[in-house]
Each structure stands twice: as structure tokens, then as C-alpha cells.
Amino acid sequence: MDITAPAIMLTLIWGIAIGCIYMLLATGLNIIFGVMKLVNFAHGQLLVVGAYLTWTFSVSAGLNAYVAILVSMVVVALLGIAVERLTFRRVLGGDKLNEIFVSLGLIYIFENATMLIWGTSSLQITSPFSGMSLNLSSISITYDRIIAVFVVIAALAAFGLLIKKTKIGLAMRATSQINNTAMLMGINVEKIYMITFAIGAALAAVAGGLYGIIFSFNYQVGAMPTIIAFAIIIMGGLGSIKGAIVGGLLYGITEQLATYFLNGLWGSAVAFALLIVVLIIRPRGIFGEKGE
């Protein structure tokens, strides 16, 4: 393998594209953590459900893959509401371990339910741009990856507007600061929790659709993205949106560079080594609030 400047450029672009998908998942996880103080380890399973639904809508209903993502977003958001009401609401505010525990149970349920419904074979979503790529002198990159980056930017911008400009966003920010005070100010905290979880699930579904277009997937792929998304928000600082974006890019680029310079085995190991180094230097993440 020869190391050339265009190849490194390509690796960087790939890293950014993959980082963007992780970023979307991480943002969903982060908003749920920020508002509800809950870590949903089954978040990656929502990504898998989103990918499968996008596949189903694009194959059986004949929708454009990118339109199918929008439909699956709505379905997964409803699924998220159901999950929040039936399980997490009952354990919120108790021991943190109970929440991890519920999400571990949900992983079992989701992983095997998707396996029952969609089978065990790997699938990939075909988009209208499949197989087409943009050629720039010596490097070529598929349109789907470029579109993925723009979709992520659009989704994050819409999300940012929702948080900063709308009344619901204001209520979410208030709840994330002190939920009891928010409740005293007349905010229906339980409704805000429900909306937050739905938004997080919808972001996971978008990430799932993009993941399914770029990579092939099966019922088991959800575990690693969850851990990666969690690592990203830990690296960036829990509850910080800026941190999720920087962390996502850092993670994606490191992983791709390690895969390029060493080999595929090292990808996640080097990325986690980076996480460990970041946390040893800054125990609360890059943008995390100062500890004691």
C-alpha cells in the first residue's frame, strides 16, 4: 500500500462522512441524556430499525430511498414514544444502573424482533445514486456519501433551530437545566420527555437510513454504533451539542486514518485509545463542564 496525498484526502472525506452518521446518532443520544439524564444503550437498535424500515419502504412501496428515510423517521419516532412510555418513564429518576438495565433488556427485544421480522441475511438500501461517484482528478467519492454529509447538516440545522427558536425547544432547555423548576414554571415535563425521546429516535432513524445506503447491514449492527455514539458524546462532553459534532468528526477521521495506515482491525481500537487519552487529559470531555 502506497501512501499518497490523494489517498489521505479520500480517507479524510470518508472519515467525515462516517463521522457525520455517528454524529447524528450521538446528537440523538445526547439530547436524550441532556434533557432526561438517561443513557439509552438501545439507541443503536433504533438505528437498525430505521435502516430496515427505510429498506422496506423503498423496496415494497417503491419510494425513493431518501423519501423512505422521512417515512421511517416518523415511524421510529412513534416507536420511541411507545418505548419511553412503557419502560423508561417507570424507572426514570431512580438508580442510574436501572436505566442501563432497561436498555440492555430493550437490546435483547429489539435485536431479536428485527431478526424475526426481517431475517438474518445482510441487506443494503439502493438509492437513486447507487454506483455513481464524483471524480476529482485522482480521487473519486460516491454521491451517496456526499449526500449523507448534506443530509446530516440539514438535520442538525433543523434540530438546532428547534432547540433555539421554538417554544418546545425553550421548554426542553429549561427541563435539561433543572426539571423540578421547569415543572414549577408550568412546563409539562413528562410531555417534554416524550418529545425529546421521539426526536432522539427520529435522528437515529435518519442515521439508520444513511447507514443502510452506505453500508450493508443486518440485525446485529446496532451495538457498535451505540457504543461509538456514546464514546463520541463522552469525548465531546455529556450534554454538549458542540461536543457531539467535534467528537463525531474526530472519531470518524481517527477510525478511517487508523484503518488506512494500520488495518481494519485497528480502526475502533485506535479511536477508543484516542477517547481514553482525551479523558485522561480532560476527565469531563472536551466541552464538558468543569468538575471538582
Partner: peptide, 18 residues
């Protein structure tokens, strides 16, 4: 068989914690 058993395990986990 195996996936349904695992779903049952997941449900048991959630029920115990709740």
C-alpha cells in the same frame, strides 16, 4: 426458538427492573 427465547429474556429484564 432462539430469538423468541432471547426476547423473553429481554422482557424479563425490563419487568424485573420496573
Amino acid at each position: 426458538g432462539p430469538p423468541i427465547s432471547l426476547i423473553a429474556i429481554g422482557v424479563i429484564l425490563v419487568i424485573i427492573v420496573i
